[in-house]
């Protein structure tokens, strides 16, 4: 599904990703862990096509296509989704309208029929109920005045509606209480299928208890310094990053 080869990227002359290689086969969930500032969010942005980051080396294929050659909206249409660590606020833009416009843009690009207002609302209500979101969240402006937890849930709602092939979740669990955490995990699990993969950036074993990753990768200073099975996350939870990062240094 996703294949990252020796990816390097910088911002403002500062090297942040320094040769990342990673394969996420279809149907698998991989976790990315690592200390603050190691480049986890940057990896998500570069995969989604943020123009502030300059790719200086390496390649990425997504479903066989050259991901780095695509515009951000083309990546979305191809089935990539990034749940932002800090979702942006869009004052004046109604959440339901935003989602419907996005969904229909993606459906058009995929050659599928657009959803009318009624069809969309039915879908949005079902999904938002499943995520235990308050009813008025669809009517409010995108992320404006949302609590931290509501913003994260709104990201998961967008993911549920856009139905990506690969979801990159950037600390979507941070700042959530235990119930909210379970809801987010359920949101991801609901999409699980042999065609769906996820790259889950997290600091917490708690989320991985619900998601059970196939692989865990530890990122440090722009490189993957260790990869392993689900037991690696438990080891990190117990001992912290220091040992792993020091080993690699």
């Amino acid at each position: 599904m996703l294949s990252v080869n020796n990816l390097a990227a910088r911002i403002d002359e500062k090297e942040i990703l320094r040769g990342i290689s990673l394969d996420v086969p279809a149907g698998q969930v991989h976790a990315i862990m690592g200390p603050n500032g190691s480049g986890k969010s940057t990896l998500g942005y570069v995969l989604a096509g943020h123009e502030g980051y300059e790719v200086t080396g390496g390649s990425v294929t997504f479903g066989g296509a050259d991901l780095l050659a695509m515009e951000p909206e083309e990546r979305a249409a191809a089935g990539l989704f990034l749940a932002f660590q800090a979702p942006l606020e869009l004052p004046g833009v109604n959440n339901a309208n935003f989602l419907r416009t996005a969904l229909n843009a993606v459906r058009r690009a995929r050659g599928e029929a657009e959803l009318d207002a009624v069809g969309f609302l039915r879908l949005a209500r079902t999904e938002s109920k499943r995520l235990h979101m308050p009813d008025d969240m669809l009517k409010r402006n995108v992320n404006v005045g949302f609590s931290g937890g509501e913003k994260k849930r709104n990201e998961v709602l967008q993911m549920a509606i856009l139905r990506p092939k690969l979801a990159v979740l950037d600390e979507t669990d941070s700042g959530l209480d235990i119930d909210a955490l379970r809801i987010v995990a359920d949101g991801v699990n609901a999409l699980r299928s042999p065609e769906f993969s996820a790259l889950v950036i997290t600091h917490h074993q708690r989320l991985l208890d619900h998601l059970v990753p196939d692989r865990v990768h530890v990122l440090s200073r722009g490189r993957i310094v260790r990869s392993g099975g689900p037991e690696l996350a438990r080891e990190l939870e117990a001992n912290g990053y220091a040992g792993v990062v020091a080993d690699a240094a």
């Binding site: 979305a76 990034l82 996005a102």
Partner: peptide, 22 residues
């Protein structure tokens, strides 16, 4: 903000349109 919209599949014009109309 534009990148956020585009990452959801909206084109840049589409995104500006939504924000301006809002």
């Amino acid at each position: 903000q534009l990148f956020y919209c585009r990452s959801r599949g909206l084109s840049e014009e589409d995104a500006v349109g939504l924000i301006v109309n809002g």
